[in-house]
C-alpha cells in the first residue's frame, strides 16, 4: 500500500476490480441501505420500467468506490465525495474502481474517481477531496 501522502499528481492509489455484479450483491445492498426500489432486484419490475434487466443501485457503485480510501481513513477523511452516474450497471458487469490524484492543495488531496465497466464505458465518475489530518 502506497502512503497516500507520498502520491504525486497523476498517480493512482491501488485500484480494485470487483467480482461480476450478482443479484445477491444488490439484494444485500437493498437490505443494508433500505433502498428497495425493485428495479434493482426484480427482473419483471426492471422490464416494466423499460430496462433490459435489473440495474445496480448508483449508491452501491459509489459505496464501492469509497473503499479505495478506507485504508487511509486514519490519516485523513473524505471531506467531499461527488459522483455522476453516467452509465447503467447490469448483472455480470465487471467494474474497475480507480482514484487518481488530480491536485494537491496543502492538506487537501483531490482525486478523480471512476468506475469503469469491462467494455471500457464509464458507469460513474466523480471527485473525492481527501483532507489530511
Amino acid at each position: 500500500m502506497t502512503a497516500i501522502t507520498e502520491l504525486n499528481v497523476n498517480e493512482c492509489i491501488s485500484s480494485v476490480t470487483l467480482s461480476p455484479v450478482s443479484r445477491l450483491d444488490l439484494i444485500k445492498y437493498a437490505g443494508a441501505s433500505g433502498d428497495f426500489n425493485p428495479i434493482h432486484t426484480i427482473d419483471e419490475e426492471a422490464e416494466k420500467a423499460g430496462l433490459p434487466g435489473i440495474i445496480a443501485h448508483g449508491m452501491w457503485t459509489m459505496g464501492n468506490i469509497s473503499k479505495l480510501f478506507t485504508p487511509y481513513m486514519e490519516q485523513g477523511f473524505i471531506q467531499s465525495f461527488s459522483t455522476r452516474f453516467t452509465g447503467m450497471v447490469f448483472l455480470d458487469d465487471v467494474l474497475t474502481l480507480t482514484a487518481e490524484l488530480a491536485d494537491k492543495k496543502e492538506e487537501k488531496l483531490i482525486f478523480t474517481v471512476k468506475a469503469v465497466k469491462q467494455d471500457e464505458t464509464t458507469a460513474a465518475k466523480g471527485t473525492v477531496i481527501f483532507n489530511l489530518y
Binding site: 443494508a32 441501505s33 433500505g34 433502498d35 426500489n37 428495479i39 416494466k48 420500467a49 423499460g50 443501485h57 448508483g58 449508491m59 459509489m62 459505496g63 469509497s66 473503499k67 480510501f69 478506507t70 473524505i78 467531499s80 465525495f81 461527488s82 459522483t83 455522476r84 452516474f85
Partner: peptide, 29 residues
C-alpha cells in the same frame, strides 16, 4: 463509511411525491 447517510430517514417533504418508475439517480454529493 462515507455513503452511510443513504440509510437515514430525512422526514417527509409536504407535497413531494416521487414516481416509482422512470426515476434515475443522476448525481450524488
Amino acid at each position: 463509511p462515507p455513503t452511510f447517510p443513504r440509510t437515514f430517514s430525512y422526514g417527509t417533504i409536504p407535497g413531494l411525491h416521487l414516481p416509482v418508475a422512470g426515476l434515475i439517480h443522476g448525481e450524488q454529493t
